[in-house]
């Protein structure tokens, strides 16, 4: 029997996996250390700006992923 670890099988799938990984990396150390400053960007602390950039990034990435899935016609 040949067991396996699930991984993307197309370039599109790998791009999505990479986008998910980049989003998760953006919210943790060491990226978060670069935003840890006692100053204001657009009237907010840099960590708050990073937080809402991640929120927007997650939303946009999933929107794009849904379009890609529809195009490849593979649901579930």
């Amino acid at each position: 029997m040949k067991h396996f670890v699930v991984h993307p099988r197309s370039r599109r799938g790998w791009c999505l996996a990479l986008a998910f990984a980049l989003l998760i990396s953006a919210g943790i150390w060491p990226v978060v250390a670069a935003f840890n400053r006692a100053e204001l960007w657009f009237g907010l602390p840099p960590l708050a700006v990073l937080t809402y950039a991640i929120v927007t990034g997650c939303w946009l990435t999933m929107l794009i992923a849904n379009r890609l899935l529809r195009r490849s016609d593979s649901d579930v």
């Binding site: 998910f20 989003l23 919210g27 708050a48 809402y52 991640i54 997650c58």
Partner: peptide, 16 residues
């Protein structure tokens, strides 16, 4: 202080 924003980040990751 700003440490509270970790909640928003993990909730967004839960959506992923």
């Amino acid at each position: 202080g700003v440490a509270v924003f970790y909640v928003v980040i993990y909730l967004s990751y839960l959506a992923l």
